[in-house]
Design a binder for these strands. Structure first.
Lengths: 336, 336
DNA sequence: CGCATGTCTGACACCGGTGTCATAATGTCG
DNA sequence: CGACATTATGACACCGGTGTCAGACATGCG
């Protein structure tokens, strides 16, 4: 298997390598006949351009980096799969870069990543999409980036989100419709803008239905299963016990379910439980969790799509997109 | 921020770019004084070599591809994290490539991946690490690869595995020690060599303890939660009901638990359940699943480590490594 | 001291593409 | 038909490194 380069194609087709390059990039000013001839040679020799050489000449790597710091494996794989879809479509590759928001020297870490990998752009997933520090750094370095699932408005960044507040509003309303009025709430990680959004949706639904907000019913979590277990302990001890718990994500909701079951409570007869995210665990446990499904793949896909657009034409406007979240009712919530 | 290239370093240091290149690659035949001088300029100018240019000159991409087709998100992220660790250590990057073993034209898909991305090597995770077709293709193309978690012996491939048979043996023995003798078994996906290994460990433990193997107690699964639910239905209907179920992975075990709970059975009082893999779900549900923990990250890390060794020196021997799996006892198994 | 050997260094081509510019071929129009 | 614009093509430098080779210089040894 000898290598097929642009030179061999040019020689074989009897044209210069520049002309081959033109055909390759669909540039104008190639006569139809020549174009045909070269394309035929591509087929015949089974030629694939070398992305590394092309990258060197164009000062591009055709690689996009994906930053994340998220304990949810399912969230990460969904992000990856959406990002990959968009990347493949445009012949880009995806570099995954898990790292810690609060780790030592985040900026240095990213700077190192950028200089050693020469990425063409960066997709930021929460909590990075909410990090002002990081975003300012990227702007200063004029690195292209896209923000996924951040509630922070900023027309100078590409941003694709889903409506977390609306989702939280709907799921709370669902509980209220089932007759619940003492609904406990478990917050997410303070570094994520989704945390505030979901909390706000919860409060708005209460207000809308004239239920007084009770701070005693709100526990601090951080999206981890463990934190959910801690919050569950507090909540289940409140007297009188709340008749429903809405946790800011499914892992914490699963923890509430586990603790409730351990305490001999029946779900949903004794207590209703709702989550957020529609993680796999939501349907793998019994009873299945009522939750909000977000289009994570689609969000990331669109974010990367926009990012690639931006890379190829920096003049393009930075799009803001909001997608819908959807309520999914399972067995963990029921009439009071 | 102007670019710092090897040329600017050379000029600034007053040497030729070849000498700079020598220092960069720790080549011999550079006088200590010159080396010092160049190194100082590296610092001063904050120089980082361009991996793309280097890749072009050396015909290398410094990218390793990771192939997987696995429904378990936690498995995938563990694989990724082990692979990333090894890659970063050696300044390689990781390209993830989910694809389907039984999909149309696997070989074509991989061939396309290889020609468009110019990968330096491939890490194969199950079921790819067991695919004879793929491995023969890679050998023919002389692509470096490493196999993770395959039971198939082959001294001509790098291979890192854990002892699945031993793990299955131990967990079965654990159930036997608790007094169980009617132990149902749910098989994994037939494309994975682990499936046969775990089945074999189960049978060996029965034989060792003089318990007759009963084919009626064995159900076919494919590692998915859904297949576990199907098998669970069959198993729970067997008369008399088995007193324990050993599922080939935790997702299927979780499905058994869900169905048992729905049928008003108490776990572990009425029936013991054991899984395999120590997936997050094993500790997120109640009761927690007794299972076998495999060093997935470590396996992948070592596989990539060996792969990179192989890439830099093709003469090196292809190592075979077997790591230990560990029994983790939780609440889902108890005395009969 | 002369010659062989070993160490250090740089000139130059090359990896496989792309950008710039000059030039040839073709078309347009008064 | 000639002047001029437009299209088509290739020569050549360049991206930022690495490999090859030749030459300068130092050292060892008979």
């Amino acid at each position: 298997m000898k290598k097929v380069t642009i030179n061999s194609v040019a020689e074989y087709a009897g044209v210069s390598k520049k002309t081959v390059s033109r055909v390759l990039n669909n540039e104008p000013n190639v006569s139809p006949a020549t174009r045909e001839k070269v394309l035929k040679v591509f087929k015949e020799l089974d030629y694939t351009p070398n992305p590394i050489a092309r990258g060197l000449a164009r000062n591009r790597s055709f690689i996009i980096g994906c930053l994340y710091d998220n304990p949810s494996k399912s969230y990460i794989t969904r992000v990856q799969s959406g990002a990959l879809e968009a990347c493949h479509k445009h012949n880009y590759n995806l570099l995954i870069h898990p790292c810690e928001l609060r780790g030592e020297a985040l900026i240095e870490n990213i700077e190192h990543l950028l200089t050693t990998s020469r990425l063409d752009g960066l997709v930021l997933t929460p909590p990075f999409s909410d990090s002002q520090e990081l975003i300012e750094f990227l702007k200063k370095k004029s690195i292209n980036y896209a923000r996924v699932a951040s509630a922070i408005e900023d027309e100078t960044s590409i941003s694709v989100r889903s409506n977390d507040e609306q989702g939280a509003f709907e799921i709370t309303e669902h509980l209220i419709a089932l007759g619940h009025s003492r609904i406990a709430f478990i917050k997410g990680h303070p570094d994520h803008s989704a945390t505030e959004q979901r909390f706000s949706g919860y409060k708005k639904a209460l207000a809308e239905h004239n239920i007084a907000y009770d701070a005693e019913l709100v526990a601090e979590g951080n999206f981890s299963y463990h934190s959910g277990a801690d919050s569950a302990k507090e909540i289940l001890d409140i007297q009188p016990r709340p008749s429903a718990v809405f946790a800011s994500n499914d892992y914490m909701a699963a923890a509430v379910l586990k603790l409730a079951t351990q305490s001999k409570l029946n779900v949903p007869e004794d207590i209703s439980i709702a989550g957020f995210d529609n993680a796999p665990i939501a349907r793998h446990i019994w009873p299945g969790l009522t939750t909000i499904a977000q289009p994570v793949e689609e969000m990331t896909r669109q974010a990367v799509e926009q990012l690639i657009l931006q890379i190829s034409d920096p003049e393009v406007e930075k799009t803001q997109i909001t997608l819908e979240a959807k309520l999914i009712v399972r067995e963990s919530t029921a009439n009071i």
